[in-house]
Every structure is written in C-alpha cells, then in structure tokens.
Design a protein around this nucleic acid. Sequence first.
DNA 1: CGTATGACGAGCC
DNA 2: AGGCTCGCCATAC
Length: 119
Amino acid sequence: MTDSRFEQIYRVVRCVPPGKVATYGQIAQLVGMARGARTVGWAMRAIPEGSDVPWQRVINSRGTISFQPGSPGEAVQRALLEAEGVVFDEQGRVDLKVYGWAGLDPVELNELLNSTSSS
DNA sequence: CGTATGACGAGCC
DNA sequence: AGGCTCGCCATAC
C-alpha cells in the first residue's frame, strides 16, 4: 500500500531511461489511472527542485512540452532532454515513435508498485 | 464537505 | 487542419 498516487507516479517516472520520453497518459495508465493524465501533470508540478525524479522526460501525447510558451520551464525541460540525446523538430516536437518509452514489463511494474519502501 | 484548479486527452465544431 | 469544449482524477482551499 502506498501513501499517495504521487509516489506511484514518481516511481514510474524514475524508471524512464535517459534519452527516452513518456507521456502523461502513459504514466497515468501505468499507475492505474488511465484517465488521470492531469493528475500526473499535477504530480510533476509538485516535484521539488533537486528531486531524483526525471520529470523532464514526461511530455504530452503530442510529443511536445506542456509548459507555457516563453516559460523558463519549457526551455529547461527541452535543454535537459536535448542533453540526453532527444531531438526536437522545427515544431518543437519529439518523435514518440523513436524516443517514446516502451514502458515497463508487467513483472517489473508490479515489483515497482509493490515496493512500499523503496529509497 | 463542496468548489475550484491544473505540466492532459480525446472528441466535436 | 486548427481551435475550442468537456471529461477525468487528485490535490488545495
């Protein structure tokens, strides 16, 4: 039993490997909230600076950064992803077919969500 | 306990 | 094809 959905979300996001990106909806589905994409976004926003959660690797289903245009967060997220090898096109979009995270195996996912006290 | 908000998503106009 | 609205889930006030 976990404390909150946030913890579950953070755990899954931590499993996203560098150079790969996941969508809010995908994370939501992995934690058991198929329609909780917004909740995932809420969780990302609640992440404190210095957290080990790679929030940068979470983007929307369009393959674009959800931050408001001109917002510092947008540039930061993009820079972090590009530093990992993720390429943005002229429209500022990421090719999810190439950089999209495949997700976790059912077994690994189960283990992940079962870890009540994972550091 | 009820209302409002939000780094989303899919559908409709 | 592009833009707008409604729906969903959880947190905050």
